[in-house]
Amino acid sequence: MKRKKSKVNRIVNVAIVAMCCYLAGSCVVLFMDQAALKSKTEAVNQQCEEQKILNDEMQGLIDQGSDKEFIVKMAREKLGLIFPDERVFFNTSGNQ
């Protein structure tokens, strides 16, 4: 009868050691996954901040674009447009 208990104890001990190894391995894998996700989260947060800055710049351009003076300035400079009652003189001598 002593032999049976010894065999059962040995099986239980092996099972406990195997379970401890499995749990330790699982913990290592979870910590690695956590570190990877933390890194990914930081990268996404950085992209979010960059996008917010870009959005603020774009909003500034939109706000500027709704100002009549800015629109007139851009129409004159970029498109060469003038008002109907306006006279434009060009210097053809080459000297400014």
Rank of each mutant, 00 (worst) to 15 (best):
K2H: 02
K2R: 02
R3T: 06
R3K: 11
S6P: 00
N9K: 02
N9R: 00
R10F: 00
R10C: 01
V12C: 01
V12H: 04
N13H: 00
A15C: 07
I16A: 08
I16Q: 08
I16D: 10
V17N: 05
A18L: 00
A18K: 01
M19R: 04
M19C: 15
M19N: 07
C20G: 14
C20A: 10
C21V: 06
Y22N: 09
L23P: 13
L23E: 15
G25L: 00
G25C: 06
C27P: 01
V29S: 14
L30Q: 12
L30F: 04
M32S: 11
D33Y: 01
Q34F: 05
A35L: 08
A35W: 05
A35T: 01
A36S: 12
A36K: 05
L37W: 13
L37V: 14
K38M: 13
K38V: 12
T41D: 10
E42S: 11
A43T: 09
A43S: 04
V44L: 07
Q46H: 04
Q46G: 08
Q46S: 11
Q47H: 13
C48A: 03
C48D: 07
C48Q: 09
C48M: 13
E49I: 05
E50T: 13
E50G: 15
Q51A: 04
Q51P: 08
K52W: 02
I53S: 08
I53Y: 00
I53G: 01
E57N: 07
E57R: 06
M58N: 11
M58D: 07
Q59F: 05
Q59Y: 05
L61K: 02
L61N: 13
D63G: 04
D63F: 00
D63A: 14
S66A: 05
S66H: 02
D67N: 04
D67E: 03
D67F: 00
D67P: 10
K68Q: 06
K68A: 08
E69W: 07
E69S: 13
E69C: 11
F70S: 04
I71Q: 09
V72A: 11
V72F: 04
K73C: 11
K73T: 07
M74S: 15
A75S: 09
A75C: 15
R76E: 04
R76D: 08
K78F: 07
K78M: 11
K78W: 03
L79T: 12
G80W: 09
L81S: 03
L81R: 06
I82F: 01
I82G: 06
F83T: 14
D85S: 12
D85R: 14
E86F: 01
R87I: 15
V88S: 06
V88Y: 01
V88E: 09
F89Y: 15
F89C: 07
F89K: 14
F90R: 08
F90C: 08
F90I: 15
T92I: 15
S93R: 01
G94C: 10
G94V: 15
Q96K: 05
Q96M: 14
Q96I: 14
